[in-house]
């Protein structure tokens, strides 16, 4: 279980996260929606310490910490319990598709090369990229790169997978294959926290949808509740605009 309490973050004078409280159950798939610049990405990045949260408490499985007092070891521990899928894929440019997956398994998780490569090949098959194992990112399409990005995150077997607008940078022709792969990840009851603008996809796979604005969680509920019967006027306004 993941428990976030009072998570706050400022950039200069601007508060980006205003005391976020959020409990995520094991296997729960949560989609975060909301206007841009409302802290959705920052929330995800703070949960992986890519951005440093300023205050709040964080519990991921057996790890519990006060984020304000997080030292180097705590930061690594949190990162090793969460996996991140980036909007711009962020594959290691000097590594092949297979090496992108094995890298952290070998270097961070200290698994043997043979073991890591077997896992990578398994994942490349699942993501439909078995024939691209030895190809470098520069020679892959956006959709293929993002599938490797998701594969790299899957391989880590973390308690939480964070998806930061994984299809926003893609040409429309590649969005489908990436969403398909995410559906497959969701089917395994992997705990997922997804920021996306794909409302139809959110409705399909989310156990819970969260609407954020101004660095706060304004409203949350099942997809039916949130999309069909939004309670807060700000949610209604947003859904009208995007829908």
């Amino acid at each position: 279980m993941i428990d976030v309490q009072g998570l706050s973050k400022r950039f200069g004078d601007t508060a980006v996260l205003n005391g976020i409280d959020l409990t995520i159950n094991d296997g729960e798939r949560i989609v975060v929606i909301g206007p841009s610049g409302t802290g959705k990405s920052t929330l995800l990045r703070c949960l992986n310490f890519l951005d440093m949260p300023e205050s709040g408490r964080l519990r991921i499985g057996d790890l519990e910490l006060d984020v304000a007092k997080a030292g180097k070891a705590d930061i690594l521990a949190v990162r090793r319990r969460t996996a991140f899928v980036f909007q711009n894929y962020a594959l290691f440019a000097n590594k092949t598709a297979r090496e992108n997956i094995t890298e952290a398994l070998i270097v961070v998780q200290k698994r043997s090369r043979i073991d890591a490569e077997a896992r990578a090949d398994e994942i490349l098959r699942e993501t439909g990229l078995a024939d691209k194992a030895d190809v470098y990112p520069a020679a892959l399409s956006g959709g293929q790169q993002q599938r490797v990005g998701i594969g790299r995150a899957m391989a880590l077997d973390t308690e939480l997978m964070l998806f930061d607008e994984p299809t926003s940078a893609l040409d429309p022709e590649w969005v489908g294959e990436v969403l398909d792969l995410m559906r497959r990840v969701a089917e395994r009851r992997q705990t997922m926290l997804i920021v996306t603008h794909e409302m139809q996809f959110a409705r399909e796979i989310a156990d819970r949808v969260i609407f954020m604005e101004g660095g706060r969680i304004v409203e949350q509920g099942s997809p039916q509740q949130l999309f069909d019967h939004p309670q807060d006027p700000r949610t209604r306004e947003f859904l009208k605009r995007v829908g």
């Binding site: 992986n48 690594l76 969460t82 991140f84 980036f86 711009n88 961070v108």
Partner: peptide, 17 residues
């Protein structure tokens, strides 16, 4: 590129790694 640093951090690499 910044994305390379972030990707390495996100998978839990130490600074040296």
């Amino acid at each position: 590129d910044r994305s390379q640093w972030e990707a390495a951090q996100s998978v839990g690499m130490t600074q040296t790694q």
